[in-house]
Design a protein around this nucleic acid. Structure first.
Lengths: 364, 364
DNA sequence: CTGAAAGCGCTTACAG
DNA sequence: CTGAAAGCGCTTACAG
């Protein structure tokens, strides 16, 4: 006895109208040539009966599940809500569902997560890699959201341009000694952001990069970054590659009695949830996740449905053993989406009259 | 021409071994009585051929998709990563995939999001409602993660106990005037947390509730909460119902030149990503999302697979028109999961010697 | 212990 | 413009 679904199916509609299931199917899908009048009647009964097409039946017949996978190796990433929301929206507009896969920040589990999605029969997947993860054999079309400078990237925010805008903003405010705060030099995204910042600053602006990873290796996780010292050294702006680290900088500075933004400015990236809530709010660069998701999903769906333009293994990608049968990196016309500057602090460095910080004030 | 999947199917395995598909199916599922030796050979060839069962075929036959839906009306909720990660993990252990649905913080779109999941044929769903959303007709088993005091709740953190623990902690440190910070009195979760706090404080401890919603109605979004004034009034601890608001309080206090935790203490809820990163780090209450997800998924799967204990419309739920055919609120044995206190600030109120704040110091 | 057969709900050439 | 039929891949009584 095969389990029957609760709702009505095509046969029921067909029977109640005295037509064939083929005609009902054609009428509902709008593909076959069915008389307008009959289409109308079929639509009406389908609606009246509360017909919901069976994805299983359709999937089995067409070989497509209508579902895409979303892989975020680092799901605890605070960007996840923005990404998931945008991807889910674009996918649902395109008629697809979104299945999530988590590799719990463990690179080794990423393959596992991808396999789980493949086993569920996803038609394609969107991967947001972290730190040069190799997107190997997915066995289905894959769109990658990383950074334009990464080989195989399908679409992403223009992190370099984002860096430039932050730099131009800080430069125009008169900051001449800027501390750049990143986590790890092995992150493509962070390198692009930092590279962009440095490229746009005039020659007379001094910068220094502080890698949190290195400090924590020495002083332990959650340690102070020594920013009060940096203020004493004359830095007047702190540009972090993420709002999370901007927040860390902001609170460390505040705790040390340094006034933000009167004495120094703090900027971040990504417009994460708290950046508009803290005092003072953070100047930041926002990704246009809606546009990014839209481009990624459109490219992915194009390959799935029309076998659109694809690349078997992106440039620079190497497949260890055999290239997986259906695995292909999807490409998009527009692969870099501009980031948008959101100014919430607009102070320059304190003028001579205001530069009267004593060591006492700085050392909490 | 029906589209064929790339991989091998049961027939291929059967053919290559000269047995029937039924036997292969039985061997692989372990259900039928197949000789151990044959099972072994079948397993081996399946593996060798890289067989991946077709979910579509299975779903069509069994009437179950093996997929659960996750509905978060407010996906931009910073808790989303924690929830999604835990749900996805528990679901995948139980052999299910997780489809996400977003109603973009729009209550009206929630029904739409739920429908999208139903159309995709989910076997059940997990809903994390916001502010008394009515979980009406889903047409499939539903597990609700809200708060124990809400009718229809399947499982959730024990927000009341969480509040008590925060209160006991602050009380033991000697705080006697505590400002409670919430957003909206219409939130069940927030009311439970605040109720728990108040219930555990000794009679001599004074509290006052500050509802952000009301302040913002008057002063606009992102306005100051006037916490420096509260410090002047003698409040020495600020207990927010979420780390997001704790962060808002922390930065507002710091910006006003008030030292946290030396002068006042700040606590939050949920151990959100930044609570351990800011300076000073936040004392907070952590939900055991792994346990909550596990209980929710187990209860859901039990109903799906065994038609376990259910309630048609939870107590207090009313269905406007007709009760939907398959809709049922799932119940679990253990419906409240204790929260865990994470102490990161442990200062009491400043002693008499330290209470020398002048107005000048407070007004930035 | 093993196999033949039916059927889940759909779509798609093909015939009329 | 409409319908009969095949078949996607699987599982499950049932017969042998």
């Amino acid at each position: 006895m095969a389990t029957t679904r609760p709702g009505p199916n095509l046969s029921r509609i067909a029977a109640s109208l005295g037509v064939s299931v083929a005609t009902v199917s054609n009428a509902l899908s709008g593909k076959g040539r069915v008389s307008a009048e009959l289409v109308e009647r079929i639509r009406a009964t389908a609606a009246a009966l509360g017909y919901v097409p069976s994805q299983a039946g359709r999937a089995l017949r067409t070989g497509r599940s209508g579902v895409l996978g979303l892989v975020l190796p680092d799901i605890s990433n605070p960007l996840f809500p923005q990404i998931a929301q945008a991807i889910e929206y674009s996918a649902s507009v395109a008629g697809y569902g979104v299945l999530i896969a988590d590799s719990r920040a463990d690179v080794g589990m990423q393959t596992e997560a991808i396999n789980r999605l493949v086993e569920r029969g996803v038609d394609g997947m969107v991967i947001v890699p972290r730190r040069g993860t190799r997107i190997s054999d997915a066995g289905c079309p894959v769109a990658v959201i990383d950074t334009p400078s990464t080989p195989g990237n399908t679409v992403s925010a223009d992190h370099w341009q984002g860096g430039r805008e932050i730099a131009l903003h800080l430069g125009s405010l008169g900051h001449e000694k800027i501390l750049l705060i990143g986590v790890s030099p092995s992150s493509n995204v962070q390198n692009d952001r930092i590279g962009g910042i440095k490229s746009a600053l005039g020659a007379k602006v001094k910068t220094e990069i502080l890698w949190i990873e290195k400090i924590e290796e020495r002083d332990g996780p959650g340690c102070l970054l020594g920013l009060a010292d940096k203020v004493r050294q004359g830095f007047t702006a702190f540009a972090a590659v993420s709002d999370l680290h901007a927040l860390r900088a902001l609170t460390e500075l505040q705790k040390a009695g340094i006034n933000v933004p009167d004495t120094v400015s703090v900027t971040g990236f990504d417009d994460l949830i708290w950046s508009s809530v803290v005092t003072p709010a953070l100047t930041t660069m926002r990704m246009d996740m809606a546009a990014i998701a839209d481009i990624a999903i459109t490219a992915l769906v194009d390959v799935i449905e029309n076998g659109g333009p694809i690349e078997r293994g992106g440039p620079g990608e190497t497949f260890a053993d055999e290239p997986p049968p259906g695995s292909r990196l999807v490409t998009a016309e527009k692969s870099r989406v501009p980031m948008q500057l959101i100014v919430r602090q607009s102070s320059g460095p304190p003028g001579p009259a205001k530069t009267n910080l004593s060591d006492g004030e700085l050392s909490t």
